[in-house]
């Protein structure tokens, strides 16, 4: 009876193609088959978990993308309206009545 480390070593050599199944005794083949099945089950579970996590992450990313677009739109709106206000202010600053009044105030000073 081989110990666990010897079986793992034989399994690794078999997986690398260094030896064929025929070169492994039947009892060791059964042990390697059990290890491979456990590994397959574990990896399948990991794959399902990863895929689920990937889906959730992608969903969050999609929400983030929507939020980002909304933020960009809001920012653009504020920038655009600010530019309009700047134009209004520039226009108001050129108002004749205001300038005349300011000139009068300066003259008074």
């Amino acid at each position: 009876m081989k110990d666990f480390n010897e079986i793992k070593e034989i399994k690794a050599r078999f997986e690398r193609g260094e030896i064929t199944a025929d070169q492994i005794d039947k009892e060791t083949q059964e042990a390697i088959a059990i290890l491979m099945k456990q590994e397959i089950e574990t990896n399948l579970a990991e794959i399902e978990k990863n895929e689920k996590e990937i889906d959730e992450t992608r969903e969050r990313i999609e929400h983030d993308r929507e939020d980002l677009e909304r933020l960009k739109a809001d920012t653009e709106m504020y920038i655009k309206e600010t530019a309009e206000y700047k134009k209004q202010i520039a226009k108001l600053k050129k108002n004749d009545n205001l300038n005349e009044l300011m000139d009068d105030i300066k003259d008074e000073e």
């Binding site: 078999f14 997986e15 199944a21 491979m36 397959i40 990896n43 990863n50």
Partner: peptide, 16 residues
């Protein structure tokens, strides 16, 4: 089938 298990295990490991 040890050969089949080896191939399936390798494929599942790659997928993981």
């Amino acid at each position: 089938n040890l050969n089949e298990l080896r191939d399936v295990n390798a494929a599942v490991r790659d997928e993981k």
